[in-house]
Amino acid sequence: MSTTTQTRTAVVARGLTKVYGAGDAAVHALRGVDVDFAAEAFTAIMGPSGSGKSTLMHCLAGLDTVTDGRVGIGDAELTRLNDKQLTLLRRERVGFIFQAFNLLPTLTAEQNIRLPLEIAGRQADQALFDRVIETVGLRDRLGHRPSELSGGQQQRVAVARALISKPQVIFADEPTGNLDSRSGAEVLAFLRRSVRELGQTIVMVTHDPVAAAYADRVIFLRDGLLVSELERPTPQTVLDALMALEA
């Protein structure tokens, strides 16, 4: 199952199990997943509805507790951390992009982007800030509030917010789910550029083969288990793999 790579590993999961509920009502969302995510790479997680891909992401990001197994981000063992330590880990090492943008309505675009740094009490590296703003093309929108931005612009603010703190890994949950195809393509292009140019590590959950094709590697989940994976995907190869999964 494990892949031999020459590059460093950013995130690692071993025997990851997640059970919701107990007894007869127990739902096994993950049934022992072993997976590595390479640093400075763009990885997509795919699978049919209910395959456990969102749960996997939540557990990898330290948003949800795991039932069994272990998760590591860099040298940190997530499964050994308490809530406070997990929060600090998210603050320092993890970035998020959500389907529903999730910007704070009271803050301007720039304030939203700087929020993670402010929470961590860190100063923004102005050069990085400028570069991120250039990358996502938001220079003239920085003073606007979310309600004054289009969906695509809001998601670009969210991408910038994830990039600004230079996290060890960014988790993106269906980042293009709420966008039209053009805005979606733009956002995905930014994500890929941030991997290429900024050396960012990105793990993205999606059910869209076209979105997955932007990644360096796609892993496929079914019924809580890792079933296959694909290097250097194209929309067609992803679609084929998905068909094979359904079969």
């Binding site: 809530d83 406070k84 929020l115």
Partner: peptide, 16 residues
């Protein structure tokens, strides 16, 4: 609720 969750995800501790 969602906003609070987002802040928690971004690294705001419970006491904060």
């Amino acid at each position: 609720t969602r906003e609070s969750a987002l802040l928690r995800a971004l690294g705001l501790t419970r006491p904060q």
